[in-house]
Each structure stands twice: as C-alpha cells, then as structure tokens.
Write a protein that binds this DNA or RNA. Structure first.
Lengths: 247, 247
DNA sequence: CGGTCATTTGAAATCGTTCAAAAGGAGTGG
DNA sequence: CCACTCCTTTTGAACGATTTCAAATGACCG
C-alpha cells in the first residue's frame, strides 16, 4: 500500500527489501478513508500522527480571515502531509482532500524509528523535505513572475512530472481531479481567468483537458511556454552512492 | 559570533552552555566576508559547506531564462542558507547578498556532528526547517491572495518580527537594507508600483521609511492591513518540554 | 563635481477581475 | 427514466489594479 511512497523515495536512493517492508508496515498501522473536500487536519490543530497520502489528491491551503484561500501545494499519492511537524505546537495551515483519499496515519514513534534505524529511509525522507521546500519556492516564483498562461502551464507540467515519477501517468495522460475554482486558488487567478487561460492552452494544442483527465501531447512544448525546468524536483536516482547494499 | 543563530534557536528551546559552545565552534571554523550583491552560491552549484548568515542580509532567488527574478526568501542574521542541502547534487536556486554580509561556512561534518550529538540542537535545527517551510508557504499565499498594499505590509511585518526575535530591532525600528527594486522582486510587483504602495503606507502613517531604516509606529495597525498573523513563525519558546537540563 | 544608482511622477496600455448570466454535466429522488 | 437541483464550465462586458514607458528628481560615491 505504500507503493507510491516507495517509488518516490526510490527516485533518490535504492531501498532494500527490509527498508520497503518497514515502510509498508508503518503505512499499514492505521488507515483512513476520506471523501472529497474533507480536512485531513486544520490550521490550529495540534499535530499528531503523520499522514501519508496513499491514494487520491489533497492540498495544503491557507485561509485569510476574509475567506480568500490559497492552495500552497498539491499532495499526490506518496506525499507526506506533515512529516516531522509533530515538534510544533500547532499546525500553521490546513490540509484538505480534493478527491476521495486514503491516508495512512503513521504513529510518530514509527516515523522516529524509521529515521533512527533505517539510514537510507532517513536520508530519503530528508530528500523529500528538501524537494518540498524547492517546490514551494517554485510556486512562489510561479505566482510572482509568471503571467497567467505561463503559470497554468507550469502547474500542469509540475503535476504531470511528479505523477510520472510515481507511475501515475499513462503515456501523455494523467488524472487531474481538480475543479477550475481549485486551480484558481492554486494559481492566484480568478476562476474566470483560469477558464480563459485553459482555453488558450487548448487552442494552442498544448493541453487536452476532458473531465478529470489531462493530456499533454507535447510536454517539451508546454515546458517551453511555462519556462519549466524539472531540476527543482531532484528526480532520477541521483544517489548512486547511497544504493542499498542488500537489495 | 553565532549569537543570532543561538537567539533564534532559543525561540524554540533552551540551550545548555555546551550546546552554545558547540554552535560557536562550528561557526568559527571558517568565515567569509562578502560585499553587497555577491552570490553566496548559485543555482547549479554542487552544495558544499553549510552557510550561516552571521551579519547582513541575503536572499534566495530564482531567475527565469528571460531575466525575470523572484526573491523567494530574505535571509537574516542567524539564518542558515543551505542546511542539509548537501545531500542534493545541485542547488536549485541561488543565494545572494543584499548588503555586506559575513557568513560562517560550517563544514558538513560539523553539521552532522551537531545533529547526531546534540539532541537539543538537532531538534532546534529541525524546527528552523519547519519554520522556513512555513514562511515559504506564507509567501506563496502573500503573492497569490494579497493585493499590493496588503502584500508589502505583510512583508514588512514579517521582517520586523523575525528581526525582533533575534534582537535586531530597536523599539519600533529596524534596518531594511533593501532597494525598492529588490522589494519588487520579492513581492512580484513592478518597482513603480512598489514605490506607490510604499507611499500609500506612508500616507496612512503605517510605516516610516527613511534611507535604510524602517519604523513601524503601530505594528498592530500594520498587521491588520496586512492580514498578518505571526503564528507561522512559531516563535516564543514553545518547547518547555525540551528545556536544557543543564543550563 | 560628475556619474551612477535609487526614488519619484505622469500618462497610457494591459492583464486580470468582477459582475451577471447562460449553458453543460452529474447525481438524486420520485 | 424524467425532473430537479447543484455544481462546474463558459461567455460577455465593464471596470480596475498593476504594468509599461518615459522622464525628472534626489541621493550617494569616488
């Protein structure tokens, strides 16, 4: 069940059978099934267990007092919602589902055990944190510098490449279980303008969006429009030096 | 010399004399003095030592191919530029100075030693990572949801509160060694609009900006305009449970 | 004292928002 | 299976926040 997490971590380092079993065990202690648009946790909550997305999409978001909402990250299968946040007193943001989701609730002691006793996992989890930070910086750049078309294109590139890394693409297609209103909250645009921007991308033949399915006929072309470079995702098994010695 | 780092970490947990000496030692191994607008490291570089800002201001930034620049974070005295990034192959962004800066270059082995053998420091460094992530999320929200006036106000609130946490404010004033063009790169606005926005804040009596000095006569009022809440900075010695047992 | 960089001002152009409403789709209960 | 409802997508038109362009003023450095 921790398949996607394992695939993700293997982008950074090979894992031994033992490593993988430890991850599977941690992820199977307790699971929770949520519908669309439910909170996994909410700003102000005290952190508890660590939530791993097994299936479905979620997002980090912040609300302003007057109701404006910013989606600050998409959480895809294999993503951890709150790794290590249990040292804080309160969550400073919320995480909610965008589609039906299955989460594994990993007890914090299990996380500590993984960190202390499985060096490859420990390093790989550090790597996931660094990548998350890099993604967040990229989103800041996206909102600050790119115009609407570039911004939407960039978001779609990122989602596609991240899904591909965990095996959730089929050819040039993937799921995109997100409404235009949610894309608006993620890009800082109005829903009206998101709609027009998507139409423009469609008109240029850069994306095909039907229902909840996204197709990108020419990823290079979309990346060019988006000024997208995947370097910040740090994918592709760079850690040869950390290969499992006992796979 | 690691005074500001120590003050920052003490926002999270008390430190023993031993802890502090270890930090001082790590920060004194090698220091580097940089002028204004020099790079501490650059996107694409291989990570090496860990850079700690001892004095002066720096920023994380990303450049797009066509020259647009986004400042993604301000790095203030006591901030670490690249904690744990040495597990990556390449830096995905650059860090450059905004004013003359003194950095301590901490060998990565020294960082590992601190993490492995000083549990309070280890946890506190952890906490700094979480706060950095939270700040980055907040910047995303700032760019995505707040209009120009709120956005500038928010940025100034954050900087002031962070500086206050390390003792770099005097009453309602602090340094702001940053040009309007740099504020523009940080807020995703044009320099012209930054200028007009600052004038508006001035006209409302919310800020006094003369030269490189910022004064905030009524922080609460500025926070209200900015929809600013300091919760995401996780300041204020919340970790009673982690108090040093041997201070 | 000249030169360079930073701030300020004005006016026109533009991108994106807002408001309002229609059209399309999916699920529900009768 | 239809009628109904709710939600999402789409369209049009006016408005407004922010950008761009261009130039003047001010501050600091050598």
């Amino acid at each position: 069940m921790a398949t996607y997490l394992i695939r993700k971590l293997e982008q950074f380092t090979a894992l031994s059978r033992d490593d993988k079993e430890a991850l599977e065990r941690a992820a199977s202690v307790r699971q929770r099934r949520l519908g669309s648009r439910e909170d996994i946790f909410h700003e102000g909550d005290a952190p508890g267990r660590v939530n791993l997305i097994l299936d479905g999409w979620a997002c980090r978001y912040k609300m302003l007092e007057d109701g404006r909402r910013q989606i600050a990250a998409f959480l895809l299968p294999g993503d951890l919602c709150d790794l290590r946040m249990f040292i804080l007193r309160q969550m400073d943001h919320s995480v909610g589902t965008l589609s039906p989701v299955t989460v594994a609730e990993i007890p914090k002691d299990a996380v500590i055990d993984l960190s202390d006793n499985y060096p490859r996992i420990s390093r790989a989890l550090w790597w996931t944190s660094l990548v998350e930070e890099a993604i967040q910086r990229e989103w800041t750049t996206n909102l600050g510098q790119r115009d609407a078309l570039e911004r939407m294109a960039h978001l779609l590139c990122e989602v596609f490449v991240r899904l591909r890394a965990v095996g959730l693409t089929a050819g040039s297609s993937c799921e995109l279980p997100v409404t235009q209103a949610e894309l608006a909250d993620a890009t800082g645009l109005s829903t009206v303008h998101v709609n027009r921007t998507i139409q423009e991308l469609r008109a240029r033949g850069l994306v095909i969006l039907r229902g909840k399915t996204l197709s990108i006929p020419d990823l290079d072309a979309l990346q060019d429009v988006a000024l997208f470079s995947a370097n910040y995702l740090h994918l592709g098994r760079v850690g040869r030096e950390y290969d499992a010695n006992d796979v």
